[in-house]
Simulated scan of single mutants.
Amino acid sequence: MLGDITVAKEIYIAYGYTDMRKSIDGLAAIVQEQFHLDPFSKCLFLFCGKRRNRMKALMWESDGFVLLYKRLENGNFKWPRRETEVRPISWQEFRWLMEGLEIEQKGAIKPALPGAFC
């Protein structure tokens, strides 16, 4: 299905600025060469420009790449700016990002790992 991002196994956010003139080939090259990840995996890769009001998402479907582009009319994305870094984010962090919030919410309850009693 065209652009169904819910099939993505993981979401990766590219910190820092990305040249928004880059298209599918340029963004796939960043994923492969700079971040050492496989652009053909079932992952969603997120990129943001310098003004932080535009975002591109790249994902491989079984027959080709899908490139999604979002431009905000009011406000900007709270995009992390550590240079040349990529990290996986959860679906909850993705929702926060799309709602104009930072992906690292200080007041959020973090998922707990199962532990031993006593």
Rank of each mutant, 00 (worst) to 15 (best):
M1F: 07
L2F: 13
L2Y: 12
G3I: 09
G3C: 11
V7K: 15
A8W: 07
A8Y: 06
A8Q: 08
I11Y: 08
I11H: 05
Y12T: 04
Y12K: 05
I13R: 02
I13C: 05
I13M: 13
A14C: 15
A14T: 04
Y17I: 14
D19S: 05
M20I: 02
M20W: 00
R21A: 12
R21G: 04
K22H: 07
S23C: 09
G26H: 01
G26V: 00
L27V: 08
L27C: 10
A29C: 07
A29L: 09
A29W: 01
A29D: 11
I30Y: 00
Q32S: 14
Q32H: 14
Q32C: 07
Q34L: 03
F35K: 01
P39D: 06
P39H: 06
P39V: 07
F40Q: 12
K42F: 03
K42Y: 04
F45S: 01
F45C: 00
L46R: 00
L46T: 03
L46Y: 01
C48L: 04
G49T: 08
G49R: 06
K50H: 11
R51A: 15
R52E: 10
N53M: 05
R54S: 13
R54V: 14
M55H: 04
M59Y: 13
E61S: 09
S62L: 13
S62V: 06
S62C: 11
G64I: 10
F65Q: 06
F65L: 06
L68F: 13
Y69W: 12
Y69A: 05
K70H: 10
K70R: 15
R71L: 11
L72S: 05
N74Q: 14
G75E: 10
N76K: 10
F77N: 02
F77E: 01
K78F: 06
W79H: 05
W79G: 02
P80Y: 08
P80G: 11
R82S: 11
T84W: 03
E85T: 15
V86S: 12
V86K: 03
R87I: 04
P88G: 03
I89W: 04
S90D: 10
S90Y: 10
S90A: 11
W91P: 01
E93T: 06
F94M: 14
R95A: 09
R95I: 05
M98C: 14
G100R: 08
G100N: 08
L101T: 02
E104Q: 11
Q105S: 12
Q105W: 04
K106L: 10
K106S: 13
K106D: 10
A108R: 14
K110N: 09
K110I: 10
P111Q: 04
P111S: 06
P111F: 10
L113E: 12
P114S: 09
P114M: 04
A116G: 02
A116T: 08
F117G: 07
F117N: 07
C118W: 03
C118N: 11
